[in-house]
Computed example of a mutant assay.
Amino acid sequence: MSELSDLILLVLLLGIVGSWLKLARGREQATQEARLQCRQHGLQLLDESVGLRGLRLLRQHGQLLLERCYTFEVSIDGNDREPGKLWLIGSSLSGLSLPTIQSHLPGLLSEHVPPPAHDNVVPLRPRLRKDNTLH
């Protein structure tokens, strides 16, 4: 009986090691994809690393697929830290979330923002009553 329990324990241990190696390979793929996306969007990948945030089963075209979510931090101008996320199915990118670059460029946006009003009262047009007289 001990031989059977030893065999089950060995198979379980091999399964855990195999899963760990597969997730480590997936993390390397996610790091490469994060580098590529940061380079394409003009961002700096901080710490040169990603972290596994979650796993979920996804059904596409009748197949169950495992989708992995990784988080990482990026910098727009070298003085900030912003969160980013990417989702992978296998080795292909299925989703990406990066910070909005425009929200961090106040010099470029300030010329499009109207100057503040001197008071907070908004003038309203007079309304007509049903009998066509003004309120």
Rank of each mutant, 00 (worst) to 15 (best):
S2H: 08
E3Y: 07
L4N: 12
D6E: 12
L7G: 03
L7H: 09
L7M: 08
I8F: 08
L9E: 13
L9K: 15
L10E: 12
L12F: 05
L13A: 15
L13T: 12
L14G: 12
L14A: 15
L14C: 13
L14K: 15
G15L: 04
G18H: 06
A24R: 12
R25G: 01
G26C: 04
R27T: 15
E28H: 09
Q29W: 00
T31Y: 00
Q32N: 07
A34D: 01
R35M: 08
R35T: 01
R35S: 02
Q40G: 04
Q40P: 03
H41Q: 13
H41F: 04
G42L: 01
L45N: 03
L45W: 03
L45C: 11
E48K: 07
E48H: 09
S49E: 10
S49G: 13
V50D: 00
V50C: 07
L52H: 05
R53W: 00
R59P: 07
R59C: 07
Q60N: 08
Q63L: 13
L65S: 11
R68E: 01
T71Q: 08
T71D: 08
V74S: 02
V74K: 00
N79S: 12
D80H: 05
E82M: 09
E82I: 01
G84A: 09
G84L: 00
L86G: 03
L88P: 01
G90P: 06
G95E: 05
L96P: 02
L96K: 04
P99N: 02
T100N: 10
L105R: 14
L105S: 11
P106S: 02
P106M: 02
L108H: 08
L108C: 08
L109C: 06
S110K: 14
S110H: 09
V113P: 00
P114N: 13
P114M: 14
P114A: 15
A117V: 06
H118I: 11
V122S: 10
V122I: 15
P123D: 04
P123N: 05
P123C: 04
L124V: 15
P126Y: 07
K130P: 04
D131T: 12
D131S: 10
N132W: 05
T133E: 07
